[in-house]
């Protein structure tokens, strides 16, 4: 199958998956509530830490309190891109043996599932994302999401968000291919997902981690999920540093995709199709 047909098929799959997702509007509302709740909780917590830290030491860690609060809102807004669990539809197919049907489609299974899972994530989550950010903007000044540091910063932020989407999707696919080992169960994939969540900065901004870890935290792949876009937005990472940071997101995406394809091709040789 040539490239044009693959693109058309991908687009078509993307559309139907979005349409499916849009049927579950209540999940978007509940997701927003959870996101806002978390963000507020973190805002209160950080305000306490910043205000009552010894000799105001928290104020010298590279991020001011308003920056941290904006970071929290952006991270919550981007949280939907991250995979908390493997795409439900694909998971079902692995578990009950419908992988068989997927393999009867004249399409590379990796491409097929990449499109499906990323579309599944976008289905309702952009509503949740936009709603969370909107609520953040409307908060009282002390807890509000501030304006971007600069116009250039905003542009870099948007570009980086797109890359974050690709990066999150390719990592989700890597985890999915690991999960193709039916007999391993959920353990390994859940550990990977938890690790990525912590290292993405969603729970604690990476800048606030110990200094000796900063180089590692910058180079590791998961910062690209939320930390890099958020830092570009609040300006703790200047637009001049955007190119290498976004480049890093690209490199990790490529690596994840390559690894995912490799594992999948190997797994498909001795795949277990469950059930009769």
């Amino acid at each position: 199958m040539d490239f044009k047909n693959t693109c058309r098929a991908s687009l078509s799959l993307f559309r139907i998956r979005m349409a499916e997702g849009l049927q579950y509007r209540v999940s978007a509302i509940s997701g927003t509530v959870v996101g806002v709740f978390w963000a507020l909780l973190e805002c209160v917590l950080f305000t306490v830490f910043y205000t009552y830290s010894e000799h105001g030491s928290w104020n010298n860690n590279g991020m001011s309190l308003p920056q941290t609060i904006s970071y929290v809102w952006i991270a919550q807004g981007l949280f939907v891109l991250q995979t908390m669990s493997i795409d439900g539809e694909i998971m079902g197919k692995i578990n009950n043996g419908d992988v068989g049907i997927e393999l009867c489609r004249p399409m590379n299974l990796y491409t097929h599932w990449f499109v499906k899972s990323s579309a599944g994530k976008l289905g309702t989550s952009w509503i949740r994302s936009v709603a969370t950010v909107l609520v953040g903007l409307l908060m009282p000044a002390a807890y509000a999401l501030g304006a971007p540091a600069s116009f250039a910063g905003l542009l870099c932020f948007l570009l980086s968000v797109i890359m974050a989407f690709v990066l999150c999707s390719s990592f989700a696919m890597l985890v999915t291919t690991v999960r193709l080992n039916v007999t391993w169960g959920d353990g390994p994939s859940h550990m990977l997902l938890l690790l990525s969540g912590i290292l993405s900065g969603t729970y604690l901004p990476l800048r606030l981690w110990p200094d000796f870890m900063q180089t590692f935290l910058y180079l590791q792949p998961f910062g690209g999920f939320a930390d890099i876009p958020a830092q570009l937005y609040i300006g703790s990472m200047p637009p001049s540093a955007a190119l290498p940071a976004i480049g890093l997101q690209c490199i990790w995406s490529t690596l994840f995709i390559a690894a995912g394809r490799l594992i999948m091709n190997r797994k498909l040789k001795n795949i277990i199709v469950q059930g009769g």
């Binding site: 047909n5 098929a9 078509s12 139907i16």
Partner: peptide, 15 residues
């Protein structure tokens, strides 16, 4: 989704 949507996707998958 409606059956027709599934058929449309298959149309694109099988070109």
């Amino acid at each position: 989704v409606p059956v027709a949507d599934s058929f449309d996707v298959l149309k694109d998958i099988y070109a």
